[in-house]
């Protein structure tokens, strides 16, 4: 493989894990394509009201 690799990653799905994968990768020096089928990222978590245990807003 050597040095002939592409320094970018495609992340398919913009839910909580997709978003965070993308952030981690971008912050450690890779170009990221975040591909989401809906009009905005956020996934199911954005639909939740509050989360255990702190009752933080899921937003």
């Amino acid at each position: 493989m050597g040095n002939n690799v592409t320094g970018s990653v495609a992340v398919i799905g913009g839910g909580i894990s997709g978003m965070l994968s993308a952030l981690d990768l971008a912050n450690s020096g890779y170009y990221v394509y975040l591909v989401e089928k809906g009009p905005a990222i956020g996934g199911v978590m954005a639909q939740l009201d509050k989360t255990f245990p702190t009752n933080d807003c899921a937003m």
């Binding site: 040095n3 690799v5 320094g7 909580i16 894990s17 994968s21 450690s28 020096g29 890779y30």
Partner: peptide
């Protein structure tokens, strides 16, 4: 969330020679 970070590092492991080339 853990999966996300783990996948990010696994994906990055393959590409480390090309780190910072496209940013």
């Amino acid at each position: 969330v853990l999966d996300a970070s783990a996948a990010a590092s696994a994906a990055g492991d393959d590409l480390s020679p090309a780190r910072n080339t496209l940013t």
